[in-house]
């Protein structure tokens, strides 16, 4: 069965390593914070100016002066720090943040990503996504394998305006975990429980490499 949003988040949480600073985008990526594996210490960075971001506040304790990049009210954990936007993107460009998780509308088999604009229909802006993808050492994309029309979001070339080129190294969808090798394309690593390799092949429009037995994910 395909994973739900929480399943995708739980699988991505398995990629977290001790001591990493992590930036989580809006949507499914935000859920990753709910599934940090035991024994792993990470700190969450939100690009509007906080390191050591904690969970949502208790009812009645919301502070208008403490929000994340999704404009949601949050808390600060022990050891947290606050800073301005230039410092925040300084730490992003200087690669102090080890992992960025973000959503996407399209990803290409060369690691290009599009997630900020649908010409004529939706123009919300790139926010911090272009800065993050241009500089992050590890980018994991969290998204559905297909869009609402049932079309593959894993393409040979993005059709929408790009957010970044050749930057995505790993994609976790409701169906599969795939690495990206710009020379070879999407490398299928794991499939969601009960999802067949044939289904993944059928729903992947870009180049897909299937080598040997593809294990089911453990989530």
């Amino acid at each position: 069965m395909a994973l739900d949003k929480n399943g995708i988040a739980r699988r991505i949480a398995q990629e977290l390593r001790n001591g990493w600073y992590v930036n989580l985008g809006i949507g499914i990526p935000t859920l990753v914070a709910n599934y940090i594996p035991d024994g792993i210490d990470v700190e969450f960075q939100s690009e509007n100016g906080i390191l050591g971001m904690g969970p949502f506040p208790f009812e009645g304790e919301e502070d208008a002066d403490l929000i994340n990049a999704g404009k949601q009210t949050i808390t600060a954990l022990a050891g947290a720090s606050l800073f301005d936007s230039a410092t925040s993107f300084g730490m992003i460009r200087a690669r102090k943040v080890q992992l960025t998780v973000l959503g996407a509308m399209e990803v290409s088999d060369r690691g290009d990503i599009a997630n900020w604009k649908i010409p004529g229909r939706m123009v919300k802006g790139m926010g911090g996504a272009m800065d993050l993808v241009a500089s992050a050492e590890r980018i994991i994309v969290a998204m559905q394998h297909s869009n609402r029309e049932g079309e593959s979001k894993l393409l040979s070339a993005c059709t929408l305006p790009l957010t970044g080129v050749g930057c995505v190294k790993k994609v976790v969808t409701d169906l599969a975990v795939l690495d990206i090798d710009p020379e070879r394309g999407f490398i299928l690593r794991e499939r969601a429980p009960g999802v067949s390799v044939d289904e993944i092949i059928a729903k992947t429009a870009g180049r897909l490499v299937v080598e040997g037995e593809i294990p089911e994910m453990t989530v």
Partner: peptide, 12 residues
Amino acid sequence: EKRIEQRTVRPK
């Protein structure tokens, strides 16, 4: 006024 855009909370 300090309006909050997305009020997200945990139950107390």
